[in-house]
Amino acid sequence: MNALKVALYILVYPGFLFQSGFSTFLEWLDRKVYARMQNRRGPMYTGWAGILQPIADIVKLLSKEDIVPAAADQRAFAFMPILSLAAVFTAGLYLPVWHLRSFNSFEGDLIVVLYLLTIPSFALFLAGWFSVSPYSLLGATRVLTQLFAYEVPFFMAVLTPAVLAGSWQISKIAIFPWTVAGHWWVIPIELIAFVVAILALQAKLERVPFDIPEAETEVVGGPLTEYSGKKLAIFRLQKDILMYVGAALVACVFLGGFGALPQGGDQASIGVLGLVFGGYLGGVAGLLLGVVGLLLKTTLVVFLLSTLRAACARIRIDQIVRFSWRYLAPWSVAQFLIVLLLKAKGAV
């Protein structure tokens, strides 16, 4: 029975099926928002308002011919998409989307998720490296250069709320603003770290203005230049799930996750909605509201990412390195100091 439950967790919710479905929805939303901001309509005729467009793309790619270049390392070439998909998918399992804590959560899962989210970048680098094409190689080296730029600010920004909450467990960080009455103000004081995390997440996802590794006017398709068919489909799915996991992580850590809602008996939930609904909806309904709350917050983060993508143009590789180390890293250090001072004064 327990094994069945775990299998359901892994395969259906919050595992593979849910992650794939919701992340394709997020890609559709991202494309729609991007199109509307460019005065376009975006996908229209694939399902309602084009909502099935990402699924059509992936099914089409799965049904296409799969070319492996003769010069490429056959096994490594085929292994990289699977490795990166497995990494982001495993990271998604640690997110507390259902209960207060996910079935495999433990003290320190935030660090595990952060490391798992680094693997796709390395897989992308190795994918470009093993496909042995000049454009792939250039793109691959850019992936690594960019990784060194955004990774440290991202880690520092995400660890700030952890220090604030005094825990390395995502669910505890997420519930922290709602545990004591009137404690929600810890959300606005983390604004700087939130901005840094959004910018670094955009760089991690390699989207405009940080799409330097796959800048099509310079390096054709970047590390994915030689990928086609099924392997490209897996990479696309991986990118969507990475967007979902990254956005949901930011929503959990900075925006209070499923918070402000009743989550069963063991935690006091004193947010506004908790006060309103807590008396009437216990158990399942409260859980559902929590899930909807978290998904709405995730969607909000993706909306911010799309806005950033539509508003900016691509910058150069030296500019992103300079920007991260000159601005993002000091900003996150400043945020860290603010939080430490607050904690020292006993305000939190």
């Binding site: 494309r31 199109a35 460019q38 005065n39 376009r40 309509r41 975006g42 996908p43 229209m44 005729y45 694939t46 084009g50 467009q53 059509a56 793309d57 089409k60 296409k64 070319i67 454009y135 099509e216 006017t217 054709v220 398709g221 994915l224 230049t225 030689e226 990928y227 086609s228 490209l232």
Partner: peptide, 21 residues
Amino acid sequence: MPHYDLERFGVQLKATPRHAD
């Protein structure tokens, strides 16, 4: 471009022949 917007039909411009149909 925005005026005709081929992305309505799911058309996307790709940079590499490996991705194109």
